[in-house]
Nucleic acid binder design. Structure first.
Length: 261
DNA sequence: GGACAGGGCAGTAATACATC
DNA sequence: GATGTATTACTGCCCTGTCC
């Protein structure tokens, strides 16, 4: 299947690009550190003998700071070590800075630094996403941030419903969702439901392979106030007619009303 | 406003270690 | 040796800030 091959190749290229970028960031930061601390050291790192490179790395892990002078997160330092390892491997350096005993000093320095940073309260994943609880949702509803009765609340509501219902599905990307990607349908018994059409764009065979019902969310007739289908219908009704074609973006930005008077 | 880079972190594979 | 669990390494996503 040429389309699938092309997609796989594209994905692979994209993945490689990201790895390269990550490696380059590690290399750039390490080089900048070397220049600032050891201005006479101008060699490429892959030609530096292991003993010297080990000392430089140990110094880097202990003293390196972000551009604003603050400490790195423990995992970031470990990521830099891996990035440098990839770069050295690429240039056929004879040692592994993460495994070989010749780099024990820098490995120990990194370990100690990570412990020290954790003691200082770093490494607590400050940007980790938090699970939205039922209680949180209730608060957001009370504050009108999840609501059918104001544009921002309605937009938040459909985004949350879609994420909860389809976020686990392979290929579901909220940011690129199109209006035609989610369809309102009715079962034989008259129960309404929303269905995410998926990347296969309605291919029945592909859908049955996925399991069928995992890309659906049904109306909650017993609780119309929190029914995702009712939210969707309200949103559909409020969308400008010009934005109701299949390829239109699902989420629309809200234009504030400006009083020029 | 778009493109890009930096930084933090999550997901997954590989590896090491423990238990049966 | 087989299986389960923990740790480490690798890769790439996402958010934010900066620059043009």
């Amino acid at each position: 299947l040429p389309d699938q091959d092309e997609r796989a190749a594209e994905l692979s290229r994209e993945q490689n690009e990201k790895t390269i970028r990550s490696t380059q960031t590690a290399l750039r930061n390490f080089r900048e550190f070397l220049i600032s601390k050891y201005p006479s050291e101008t060699r490429e790192i892959y030609v530096i003998p292991c003993k010297e490179l080990d000392a430089y790395l140990a110094s880097f892990f202990v003293d390196a700071r972000q551009k604003d002078g603050s400490e790195y997160e423990p995992n970031s330092l470990a990521n830099y070590q891996c990035g440098l390892e990839r770069y050295l491997k690429e240039h056929r350096y004879g040692y592994s800075i993460t495994r070989d005993k010749e780099f024990k000093r820098s490995q120990e320095a990194l370990k100690q630094k990570q412990i020290e940073l954790r003691c200082k309260g770093k490494g607590n994943k400050p940007h980790k996403s938090m699970k939205l609880t039922f209680a949180d949702e209730l608060i957001l509803r009370k504050r009108g941030l999840l609501s059918r009765y104001n544009p921002e609340g309605l937009l938040n509501l459909v985004w949350l419903n879609n994420t909860k219902a389809f976020g686990h599905c392979t290929g579901f990307h909220g940011s690129t969702l199109k209006w035609g990607d989610i369809r309102l349908r009715v079962t034989e018994t008259g129960l309404e439901y929303l269905e995410w059409m998926g990347p296969d764009n309605g291919d029945v065979n592909a859908k049955s392979k996925r399991g069928g019902t995992d890309s659906r969310v049904y109306a909650t007739q017993h609780s119309p106030q929190t029914c995702p289908v009712q939210d969707y219908k309200e949103y559909a009704q409020r969308r400008p007619p010009a934005m109701r074609y299949e390829d239109a973006p699902f989420y629309l930005s809200i234009k504030p009303v400006v009083n020029l008077a």
